[in-house]
Design a protein around this nucleic acid. Structure first.
Length: 492
RNA sequence: GUCUCCCUCGUCUAGUGGUUAGGACAUCGGGUUUUCAUCCCGACAACGCGGGUUCGAUCCCCGCGGGAGAUGCCA
């Protein structure tokens, strides 16, 4: 039988790490097994729905290069794939359950339910949930409520006796007493929209989903879903509950742990291959030692057996490391186009790019690629090329083991050596040798000469390599900045 | 409160009834280097606890402890 899996997010927020991890696992499982990956939009909560979320879903998957075989936009034999467009369907199925006696109309007001809940909490009752107030209304009572214009919800009749077991590929059998299953959950809301439970089960069945891979937070509702399948008389799919993604404090990963929206990672300059690689490794491993996986490799080697049971903490530092690795592996022309938007946003280069800017950017890439963890790092790294904020605190120019006087001399004579050398087309190694000789003569470390020069040219103690910086800056600007620094030390 | 699930270095993980319990990130130290970074080398660091079963348990069983999730006209 063909494997059919789905990613079924609800467009009520931006795509986050946890969601995308679920999408990836489903996608890779489908690919590795020659099956189909289906995207379904579960937009049944019209209070929290937003167009922005839906657009974010599409753009995020596109950015990651995750293509769905069936779903919105691309269509497919089980469409539509957006639940709000399947509106009538759920009502039909809910009413079918009512007719079978497996579900019933409930006319309780939200206020009453709130009151019931409150009392249960206050009395510390063991019994939590709906009190089944409407479970046994007579036909005439129902008619009377309807005549009054009260919009009912439809609730599933959960058995009070017995227990329900479902099998999870990872966890094994999970059993719950029926009396512990959330009593009589709402299937169809009073606005006619289905709740998650109904829509999810109906669609998974209608769309021929074979494996349900979703986060472990859904385990408790597993028995409920099984009850639903049984009420309909449908075959139950395979379950595989994925370990949750946690924050540093062990709680479910959320905004307060840092960025969780994939869009934010993208904006900061994470590469899609780094996100895919790292996120897939959160709760999954192939052999415990292989770390680097391309998307294409994962499409071949992903297995359910490699999924871990325990929740996993999302390590931002390790993501950074992966990203740095991928940046260093990327080829220079790609990196040039990747860093361009950051330089444009900083106002350093124009949009569209001039020919000179494009040329400069291509020269920036090699020295910068060894130093970036995220693409946005390019801005502080190259700021000295586009804006000139001279360091006026002399102490910054003074290297360890040197002093102000020696630094002033190193700066003056070093500038001389450097500038004349550059103008005469001398080799960098040769200039370097002379500068080193100067440091020996002054009785200071090599850096005692290089640091003041570097600070003068790049306005920072931390910078790209000196000769790279000079090449990017140009000889005239270099000279101007050096002379300015020399002057700073001449003043007293 | 009730229910369900989980438990190997700080973090992600590999692993086995007998191993020096392996790898990676992070951290620390060293080397390369004009700074930073890269790169290389090294170090630190784990089987939650208590009972069993066994010649022997990290691994099997039970209990405890800890953590998480669920308990909505949200998904």
């Amino acid at each position: 039988m063909e494997v059919r899996v789905r990613y079924a997010p609800s467009p009520t927020g931006l795509q986050h790490i946890g969601g995308i991890r679920t999408a990836l696992f489903n996608y890779f499982f489908a690919r590795a097994n020659g099956g189909k990956f289906i995207l379904r939009v579960e937009d049944t909560d019209r209070e929290r729905y937003s167009d922005e979320s839906l657009e974010d879903l599409y753009s995020t998957l596109e950015w990651l290069g995750i293509k769905w075989d069936e779903g919105p936009v691309v269509g497919g034999p089980c469409g539509p794939y957006i639940q709000s467009e399947r509106f009538d369907l759920y009502k039909k199925y809910a009413e079918e359950l009512v007719e079978k006696g497996k579900a019933y109309y409930c006319f309780c007001t939200p206020e009453r339910l709130e009151e019931v809940r409150k009392q249960q909490v206050e009395s510390k009752s063991e019994y939590q949930g709906y009190d089944r107030h409407c479970a046994h209304l007579s036909d005439s009572e129902i008619k009377e409520y309807l005549r009054q214009g009260i919009k009912p919800v439809i609730r599933l009749r959960v058995p009070t006796e017995g227990k329900t077991t479902f099998h999870d590929i990872l966890m094994g059998d999970i059993t719950r007493r029926n009396r512990d299953v959330s009593p009589d959950p709402i299937l169809l809301k009073s606005d006619g929209f289905p709740t998650y439970h109904l829509a999810n089960v109906v669609d998974d069945h209608l769309m021929g989903i074979t494996h349900i891979m979703r986060a472990q937070e859904w385990i408790p509702s597993g028995p409920l879903h099984v009850l639903l399948y049984e009420a309909f008389g449908w075959e139950i799919p395979q379950y595989c509950h994925l370990p949750m993604v946690m924050g540093k404090d062990g709680q479910k990963l959320s905004k307060r742990h840092g960025s969780t929206a994939v869009r934010d990672f993208r904006a900061k300059g994470y590469l899609p291959e780094a996100i895919i690689n790292y996120v897939t490794l959160v709760g999954w491993s192939l052999d415990g030692s292989t770390e680097f996986f391309s998307k294409e490799e994962l499409e071949k080697c992903f297995t359910m057996e490699g999924i871990h049971k325990a929740p996993a903490v999302f390590d931002y530092k390790k993501l950074d490391w992966f990203n740095g690795q991928y940046i260093r592996q990327a080829d220079d022309s790609r990196l040039a186009s990747l860093i361009t938007p950051y330089l444009q946003e900083a106002g350093y280069v124009k949009n569209p790019l001039s020919a000179e800017d494009a040329d400069l950017i291509s020269k920036i890439v090699p020295p910068v690629k060894e130093r970036m963890k995220v693409l946005s790092d390019v801005v502080p790294l190259t700021a000295f090329l586009f804006e000139d904020k001279p360091v006026t605190d002399k102490a910054v120019y003074v290297a360890k083991g040197s002093d102000e006087e020696k630094t002033g001399e190193a700066l003056q004579r070093g500038s001389d050596i450097l500038l004349s050398g550059l103008k005469n087309g001398e080799k960098e190694e040769s200039i370097e040798e002379k500068l080193t000789a100067l440091s020996q003569e002054l009785g200071i470390k090599v850096n005692g000469v290089f640091q003041p020069i570097r600070v003068a040219i790049t306005n920072s103690t931390v910078s790209l390599p000196l000769f790279d910086s000079i090449r990017l800056l140009g000889i005239d600007e270099t000279e101007k900045r050096l002379m300015r620094a020399v002057k700073l030390f001449e003043e007293n």
